[in-house]
Write a protein that binds this DNA or RNA. Sequence first.
DNA 1: GTACATGTAAAACGATCGGTTTACATCGCA
DNA 2: TGCGATGTAAACCGATCGTTTTACATGTAC
Lengths: 175, 175
Amino acid sequence: MDTKSKLLSAAEQMFDRHGYTATGMDRLTAAAGMSSRTLYKHAGSKALLLTEVLAAREKRFMAGMEVTSVDALFVAVETWLREEGRRGCLFLRSLAETGGDAPEIAGVVLAHKAAFRARLGEIVAAELGPGAHEALTEQILVLFEGAIHAAVYRGPQAAASARAAAAVLLREARA
Amino acid sequence: MDTKSKLLSAAEQMFDRHGYTATGMDRLTAAAGMSSRTLYKHAGSKALLLTEVLAAREKRFMAGMEVTSVDALFVAVETWLREEGRRGCLFLRSLAETGGDAPEIAGVVLAHKAAFRARLGEIVAAELGPGAHEALTEQILVLFEGAIHAAVYRGPQAAASARAAAAVLLREARA
DNA sequence: GTACATGTAAAACGATCGGTTTACATCGCA
DNA sequence: TGCGATGTAAACCGATCGTTTTACATGTAC
């Protein structure tokens, strides 16, 4: 594994487990197994490192969500929760930790959420056919965020609850 | 307002807006309008201050959720979001920022979530009559967390979406 | 009238913060 | 052979961290 990806995966793990602000650069260099000089050459700054971590995570997450039905989406969410942990949404946590200041970070986070919502809209449209499904998409988005965050204390089966609820909503929408 | 409650409300605002770790004690004393000596006499430490802030917030939040129907619950959630802001759940954020270490904080957070889930179980039972409604309670819990967190980027009307979805689930459960 | 509780202002504690710098090693490639 | 890119190790920068301390001002109650 090359230096850059070693850095990104170590940083993602540290930020996710201990939080962005609480993770010092010394612990980052130790976890990544490199000198601070090398780290700064690759990342530029701590804030830029976070944006790169989030960009890589978004790519991996969205790849896992390449599904064609709402039901499969929540199965994918449960898999993600089991494999990537249940510490809440790293994007929203990053936004909250920086207080919404730090425009680079806020930009990455909000862009990711917008992209996911667009993806969700496509999935819903694929199931229900063309037409406006704004309200239903919004409800499933709420179920998605709920699965991610309830999983922190209820476990990955929160995604199964969301999946069952979404099935009811879809059946209702088709009727 | 006496010293202690002045401290607690200032600290809650600072922790909520800028995050726990990112808020220094100097900014806390400035916001609370008191010397660091007085602050430490009342709070003991930064971590203990957070637990007191969370305890006070839980009391206020649970008071706002004293409702007798799921529908009224989500109305109350929307009101909370409009009045208290949409920066995500301060309890889950505190847990994430401390990485789950700091047992005093993790304890307060998990106790709050357990208490709210119990409350939710009562509300559901009041609507559907006695009997086991575990699965439905779990689904509405997911909608609740989803409303809180989707509101960060979709606005307080995320609670209205959750409300509409919950109505469908309840109608289905009664049928 | 003096003891006590409650407060302020400000200096100081050692530790750690994000970030830079200096000095030196190793490697592939011309 | 030599040069540039890439890396390490570690000292160093000023600032800030959470916390304690010293010194002093109140008001209130025995």
